[in-house]
């Protein structure tokens, strides 16, 4: 099964591979999938708690080339979006962009799950801080 050029590009030159240091302010982490299923994605966002803007994103993925490409693309799309905008990224957007075949759609679903999990984690950890930051600013 040949891969699309975009999948090959993300696989060969993955964007934003890595992790944020523990305790970095504004970081939300999503860890989805399971080793026995053959794919695990860790996706992190770093949000400016004052503006709600995602300033940076990183990923690490255990999985096939399409899973790696889906998470790499997700980090690219997350950067510069607000938390609210980020929640609107759909797996079908990833499928279309990477031209994933039907057997690889679950990779895009996992990437969407990872985004949601990272946003959720951010909200749980930093919502209060964000509120305080905004109160302080006003």
């Amino acid at each position: 099964m040949p891969y699309s050029d975009k999948v090959i590009d993300h696989y060969s030159n993955p964007r934003n591979v890595g992790s944020f240091g523990k305790g970095t302010p504004g970081v939300g982490t999503g860890l989805v999938g399971a080793p026995e299923c053959g794919d695990v994605m860790k996706l992190q966002i770093k949000v400016n708690v004052q503006t709600g803007l995602i300033e940076d994103a990183k990923f690490k993925t255990f999985g096939c080339g399409s899973a790696i490409a889906s998470s790499s693309l997700a980090t690219e799309w997350l950067k510069g979006r607000t938390v609210e905008e980020a929640a609107k990224i759909k797996n079908t957007d990833i499928v279309n962009e990477l031209k994933l075949p039907p057997v690889k759609i679950h990779c895009s679903v996992l990437a969407e799950d990872a985004i949601k999990a990272a946003l959720q984690d951010y909200k749980e950890k930093w919502t209060n801080a964000a509120a305080e930051a905004r109160t302080g600013a006003s």
């Binding site: 860790k42 790696i68 679950h106 996992l110």
Partner: peptide, 24 residues
């Protein structure tokens, strides 16, 4: 492996088998 969250966790000493994985 540099790209693998499992490798990173194992290097940090996390027991991957004791993790609760949120599988689909």
């Amino acid at each position: 492996r540099e790209m693998s969250p499992l490798y990173e966790m194992a290097k940090e000493g996390i027991n991957l088998k004791s993790m609760h994985w949120k599988a689909e």
